[in-house]
């Protein structure tokens, strides 16, 4: 690791001020992506601003039909929170599949969404549920937030403070985890919210994306058969040592069907 100065601000204002004062400062949340990146000398921040304990970034609550989760909420907290498990069980189930226990005990919602790894799980939930990403400056709709591999609408010095998830009538996430890391080789989140179906795919393409053909097919008929009838064009999908693009194209259908079967076979209509 290159040298840096670690600072632990006492408030969100102070954190924002520190980021504004130091061009090369970076927020540090759970550190589960940032610390490995620093160890490989792939980044050289002047300062790390530790935001993990800021009270403004913590907490889980349901208000006005939305589940609101602070950016510094750890994966384990989302996975085990009774509030999340009751209001949005598919999100709790998703969080319980991230990485491993050690990673879930440190990693945070805001860190994962800000990082926007093309194989990360949370971005699929944020996009499929049509969530709103709040920062200290503004509110950003999920459709505008994710902008491709490791790229988001977040600007220099901007901090995700919380994410507001509208509560779906039914939702489920299914993923094919990479056997070593747990990251999604492909993951599909299906959600019906306010009568509208949205389907988001992570891991398969260059960044999370909405699968419009699946959304249209499910709006016609909300059943696994609607997905199975679709043809997925593999061009533009990811190909790497783990799987060719055709394999991921097939996984999209398999996982969307699994998510639908989970929804339609469960009494609560919301498991992963």
């Amino acid at each position: 690791m290159y040298e840096f100065s670690y600072v632990k601000p006492a408030s969100l204002d102070e954190a924002a001020q520190l980021l504004a004062n130091h061009d090369d400062a970076k927020p540090l949340s759970g550190g589960m992506t940032l610390i490995p990146t620093l160890k490989q000398r792939l980044a050289q921040p002047s300062h790390l601003i530790d935001i993990a304990a800021l009270t403004e970034l913590r907490g889980i609550e349901v208000t006005a039909g939305q589940l609101i989760i602070g950016a510094a909420t750890r994966h384990i907290e989302v996975a085990t929170s009774m509030t999340v498990r009751t209001a949005l069980p598919a999100l709790a189930a998703l969080a319980s599949t991230i990485g491993d226990p050690q990673v879930r005990n440190r990693g945070t919602l805001g860190g994962s969404v800000a990082n926007n790894d093309p194989n990360a799980d949370y971005p699929a939930a944020v996009l499929a549920l049509g969530a709103t990403v709040h920062t200290q400056r503004r509110a950003i709709a999920a459709d505008d937030f994710f902008q491709g591999v490791f790229t988001t609408a977040i600007e220099e010095g901007e901090l995700i403070t919380r994410i507001a998830f509208p509560l779906p009538t039914r939702a489920a996430y299914a993923k094919f985890p990479h056997p070593a890391s747990g990251f999604a080789m492909t993951g599909v989140f299906v959600a019906e919210t306010g009568g509208r179906v949205r389907v988001a795919v992570t891991g398969a393409g260059p960044g999370v994306f909405r699968w419009r053909e699946a959304e249209a097919a499910l709006a016609d008929r909300f059943a696994a058969e609607s997905i199975e009838a679709l043809v997925v064009d593999p061009s533009g999908l990811n190909a790497d040592i783990h799987a060719p693009a055709e394999y991921r194209a097939n996984l999209m259908k398999v996982l969307a069907s699994r998510a639908l079967r989970a929804i339609l076979n469960s009494s609560e209509g919301a498991v992963a």
């Binding site: 670690y6 632990k8 540090l28 550190g31 610390i35 790390l48 050690q102 440190r106």
Partner: peptide, 20 residues
């Protein structure tokens, strides 16, 4: 792996200054 305030963590991925 060690326990930090009772929870498992990978100590190679935590800064010493974070555990003050």
């Amino acid at each position: 792996t060690v326990h930090l305030d009772g929870r498992v963590v990978k100590s190679c991925t935590v800064l010493a200054v974070q555990v003050q």
